Simulated scan of single mutants.
Amino acid sequence: MVGSAAVADRTAATDGAPGAQLAGFTVGITAARRADDFAALLTRRGAEVVQAPAIRLIPLPDDVQLRQATARVISSPPDIVVATTAIGFRGWVEAADGWGQADELLGALRSARVAARGPKVTGAVRAAGLREDFSPESESSVELLEHLLGAGVSGCRIAVQLHGAATEWEPIVDVCSALRSAGAEVIEIPVYRWLPPEDPRAVDALLRTTIDGGLDALAFTSAPAVAAMLGRADDNGLLEPYLAALRGQVLVACVGAVTAAPLTRLGVETFQPSRARLGALARELAEALPARAVQVRAGGRELSIRRNCVVVDGAVREVTPAAMALLRELVRSPGRVVSRTDMLRALPGGSADTHAVDSAVARLRASLGDGQIVQTVFKRGYRLVTEQERR
């Protein structure tokens, strides 16, 4: 919020202006990778962004297990390679390159059939000079596993690039176990691990903000981040109120169905863009959030009432907290007279002087840029002027 002196100075047209599409909305993001890029996409559209990386990615280029697994693949090339994440597959090749073994590794993989879990992984596979033989449209490990088992894997040597650790919130399909049970020899490739953030204070603050109703939307870009937030809420004894917030007032946005899966299992409704990309997710938020704002026509004007501002006929108008509280009270029943006493109760701060209402209404009118939207009803209170009354 800004003071009343600055209110009249900052207006922006929302129509065709990306910088105002998300004005007045607060979005929480939990991304670990490309968090700043995603935040920039949202702030460019006017959003206030609260960042709290829920996880941290620990690459393992010098890990003994990874080097040993890579040596096994080079010495005896696999029949099938399962690539589960783009960052993981790239990390494997980059680690091998750091050891001077990239050419040997890629040479060993060229003779294998490659199963890639989704388009981003496929892109990483192709960037390495390989071609995928199968990639499920659903980006689902279940569909990928069903395809492999359906084709028959008994006697096959299969390298599986792992993607972090499973938790009760993100029960990753145990592809390796299922393949072994079907008669395959499996080489596990542990490229990286997801770990909690070293300092959980930002995550804890985001949890509390979500529960307290301080967010309009919460965005997730990976299933491990979803699992980490759920786990932290559970550790803090806040799981039920956190889930209640996600099922209620907060718009939950996920980059794709795989990311959304842990929340879907818990009855949380989410939405995803048609393409699992950060840019697409930002664009979807820029359309979905304004559609959820309170829309009212008053005083011949179109008002979109958001958390931290009001859009009047397409122009962003910043409003002080007191004035916004009164506007929300008036919007409950456009045209109905709201007494000064009722409006006083709506004011933050617990003032006992009805003159505070008159002052806040004056600031509201100045902020909206039109003194005819809110009408004074002599000795009774105030009301929004409806369209019928303007005619």
Rank of each mutant, 00 (worst) to 15 (best):
T221Y: 09
L66N: 05
G3Q: 09
T167H: 14
L347C: 05
I189C: 01
G164V: 09
D63W: 08
A13H: 05
E48V: 15
G349F: 03
G155L: 03
P348A: 08
S274I: 11
L149T: 07
T167Y: 13
T386R: 12
L109G: 04
A286M: 13
G299D: 02
P196Y: 09
A366T: 14
V125N: 04
G381R: 04
Q161A: 07
G155Q: 02
A40K: 05
A298W: 08
R390L: 12
F89L: 11
L109Q: 04
A52Q: 10
V337I: 14
G150E: 00
L215M: 10
C156L: 09
R328N: 14
E168P: 11
D199L: 09
D15I: 12
G24Y: 07
A362D: 14
A352D: 04
D15E: 13
Q161W: 05
V125W: 09
A362K: 05
S154C: 01
G164Y: 09
A182Q: 00
V121W: 03
G107P: 03
A261F: 07
C309K: 06
C156I: 01
I58L: 11
A293W: 13
A108T: 02
T122K: 06
M324Y: 01
T26E: 08
A13C: 08
A20H: 04
A315D: 14
P196S: 10
Q388N: 08
G118P: 04
T85D: 05
V203P: 06
G3D: 10
V226I: 03
T122I: 04
R390E: 12
R275E: 10
L109I: 06
S177L: 00
T259H: 05
D62K: 07
A54D: 08
S75L: 05
R126T: 15
E94Q: 07
S274K: 13
T70K: 11
R345V: 11
A205K: 13
G369F: 12
K120S: 09
T376W: 04
R232Q: 09
R292E: 12
T85A: 13
T30N: 12
E302S: 01
C176S: 11
G150A: 01
N308L: 11
A322W: 01
V175Q: 04
R72G: 00
V142Q: 13
V338M: 15
M324A: 01
V310L: 00
G369P: 12
C156W: 07
C309D: 10
E318A: 07
G350N: 03
R157D: 01
E104F: 07
F378S: 12
L364M: 11
H163K: 11
G371M: 05
G16F: 13
M229E: 06
A323P: 01
T167L: 14
T264K: 09
